[in-house]
């Protein structure tokens, strides 16, 4: 693994649904479970709301990683939004590969409202993987291709 540039801290966008993962993240807070602070959360009602373009936008804006997190299959508050989202994530992952981005920079997980510990673990995992991958090539300050964007 190459040395990561000095001063770089991962910029990770979390797109999470209101009913399960956002609530799970709140639960982790209530239980004071500590995890790294490198993620910023944008809340939507359901992962079904997530247009693949949102994720592509985040990457072109220079995000180092994107975490999409919703309810477990069968538990979506709107029945099947998470199935639709999961399908779209496969599409986005293949798009990422096509443009030369490591598709591990996008991760979809399922964290329920009662899985505070899982949420903390997921964030830690994503942060670790992002450290392994280093800054995204499109990162505005540290990326190799920053001039391109």
């Amino acid at each position: 693994m190459a040395e990561n540039p000095e001063g770089w801290k991962p910029k990770i966008l979390g797109l999470v649904c209101n009913w399960c993962s956002y609530a799970g993240a709140d639960l982790a807070g209530g239980a004071r479970m500590q995890y790294p602070p490198d993620i910023r959360i944008v809340r939507v009602m359901c992962t079904g709301r997530l247009d693949p373009l949102f994720i592509m936008k985040a990457f072109t804006d220079g995000a180092d990683a994107v975490l999409v997190s919703g309810c477990h299959f069968g538990d979506c508050h709107y029945l099947e939004g998470n199935y639709k989202a999961a399908k779209r994530m496969f599409l986005v992952k293949s798009l990422l590969k096509n443009i030369g981005l490591d598709d591990r920079r996008l991760r979809m997980t399922f964290v329920s409202a009662s899985e505070g510990a899982k949420w903390a673990k997921v964030v830690e995992d994503v942060v670790n993987v992002t450290h392994e991958l280093g800054p995204s090539p499109f990162n505005r300050k540290y990326g190799e291709l920053k001039e391109l964007v």
Partner: peptide
């Protein structure tokens, strides 16, 4: 839920309070 809005190929669906420009503004702001 917005499942329609997440898919519409023409961007023709406005989800109240979770509209595309609002979400994109959040991503851009970050």
């Amino acid at each position: 839920c917005g499942t329609c809005g997440g898919f519409c190929p023409g961007g023709a669906i406005w989800m109240n309070h979770f509209a595309t420009p609002q979400i994109v503004a959040q991503i851009d702001a970050f």
